[in-house]
Amino acid sequence: MRSANPRLLLLCAAVVAALFALQFVLSEYLVLTATRILILAIFAMGYNMLMGYTGMLSLGHAMFFAAGVYAAGLSSYYWGLSLPLAFVLGVGASFAVSLVTGLLVLRTQAVAFMIVTLMFAQVTYLTTLQFSDITGGDQGLTLPTGARGFTLMGIAVDLTRDSHRYNLALALFTATLAGLFALTQGRRGRLFAAVRENAGRTEMLGFNTFRIRLVAFVVSGTLSGMSGALYALMFGYIGSAFAGFELSIEALLFTLVGGPGTLLGPLLGTGVMTLLIDRLSGVTSAYLIVVGALLIAVNQWAPAGLLGTLRDRRLPWLK
């Protein structure tokens, strides 16, 4: 079978190869940063599936990230679940949460959709505070260091070691990239684009647009939750901030900066913004002011983001 978008496939392969090579060049500290970027990029890629490819702007994706964080983290903390099992539980929980939420919120569109997702996320955030006896609330919980390694199919993984963490994150990132390539390019991708551009017409071509939206929503939420589960288990910490408004906005910002509706945009956006925020937060505690200014600037002058602008001007296959 011929690939739907061979040039993009090639570029993705090159990016993954470059990411693999990166660990031999970067300092220990930067490998750690790169690990974080890869995990958060999965979050942004999930967000992009909904916002970029299907045209629905959510303001509450932290709730799915948090579903992954808490399901994985709490099951590991309280029940001593092995890391792979806790991870699977985290992904499963975010799948369930996004399915139920999707069935409700997909009855709304545009502005109402944004407000409703924001409110559901706020409910999630407040819930983590309300049950702080269990969740640790704002302070959070640190996972015991004894539960930081596992052996899966003969491979021993030690999550206190930087290289193990990096390669695990890279593996899951690559799997996400491959999955989203299959979903967003070619015939299937055309369906999401059709819903984004003209849902009414798509319905009259015989497609169940609600179902297409739901698939995008659940894929989006589950990937966000996977990213959350990974983040919690890898860095051994869970806390209410993972359900906060700011995190939902970060997913939006990373996607907007990198290019909504481009496969590699979220990675680029996450990379650029994480490095920038890390640098800034060393200088001032008010680093969010830059986040605010960027949101306004990108929205005003470059709503297609970095890769989106490149796609519109030069490389139409970059989608």
Partner: peptide, 10 residues
């Protein structure tokens, strides 16, 4: 459709 209803960007 009576009013042309196509995917203009495609």
């Amino acid at each position: 459709f009576q009013i042309t209803n196509i995917y203009t960007s495609m």
